[in-house]
Design a binder for these strands. Structure first.
Lengths: 151, 151
DNA sequence: CAGCATCCTCAGGGATACTG
DNA sequence: CAGTATCCCTGAGGATGCTG
């Protein structure tokens, strides 16, 4: 609020947006993250992009399933994840494959057999989800209590 | 593939789904996560639920912005996050407030002033995003190379 | 078995206009 | 300033049927 060095005449209503001279190192870190994540949406943005991939309902389940039970076939996955449509499972698996998070191995037999397994990249991603799942379960009660106590 | 102790006659095409006797502790952990995350979608599920919250485009940006720049007013946020519609910013802020991730303070002045700030819960959530953003930036090249080298 | 193709629905989210 | 209220449109995603 008070005047700071390096801050020129402020236009009045517009605030210190040029303040790269942040308070703490902590904050600086997040300013950087913010900048990385805050792109015009026309270009590709790793953070938003990869976030979106992981974030989606089915990707997470697939990664956790393969992480917990190892290599699985298409229908095994489908049965494990009860309420996924076959279409979405296919789409999800293709995306994860394209990003190198899992491998798709086809055995030319009859009937056909296709096995899915996490790559090293997939395993490291799995750990991120674990961190997240831990946070979520740890704070579930706190969040839900707040959420459902509102008018 | 070879026979394991504790494994009864397999029905042939159906595989060892009853194998709660997992190989490693590592795997057990993820089997648990999977079970927690894999709910019929009719009930509420902390993991999916909170995942969805973080996952969405604007929540992440808002958290990062407030984390990096501290308390902000509505239009400050709006200008920081270039391409968010005013509607979605409102919705996002309300959701985050309802979950206790940020506070909304109204100053009864004219013109009105409303300030948003992270709660302790919000700050801890911010750290999760940081972990994620770190992972994403660290593996961006690897992922993009794979993704764009495909047919 | 492991999918692809098609159709169809509905909710996320943008644009615009109005208000305390 | 900080929203609310409407309208509208796109695309995520389910259901169904067909194939190598």
């Amino acid at each position: 609020m008070s005047k700071q060095e390096g801050t020129q005449q402020l236009p009045g209503y517009l605030e210190v947006t040029n303040a790269v001279n942040s308070h703490t190192e902590e904050q600086k870190k997040f300013q950087l993250f913010f900048q990385k994540a805050n792109v015009p949406a026309t270009q590709l943005c790793p953070v938003r992009d990869i976030m979106a991939r992981l974030s989606d309902k089915w990707s997470m389940l697939v990664i956790l399933a393969l992480g917990g039970f190892g290599t699985m076939r298409f229908n095994e996955l489908k049965h494990k994840i009860g309420d996924v449509s076959q279409r979405m499972l296919t789409v999800t698996l293709r995306n994860l494959e394209n990003d190198g998070l899992l491998t798709r191995t086809i055995y030319p037999e009859i009937p056909p057999r296709v096995e899915y397994a996490l790559t090293p990249l997939g395993h490291s991603f799995k750990e991120q989800i674990a961190g997240f799942a831990n946070w979520a379960t740890a704070h579930t009660e706190e969040i839900y209590r707040k959420r459902f106590s509102d008018s």
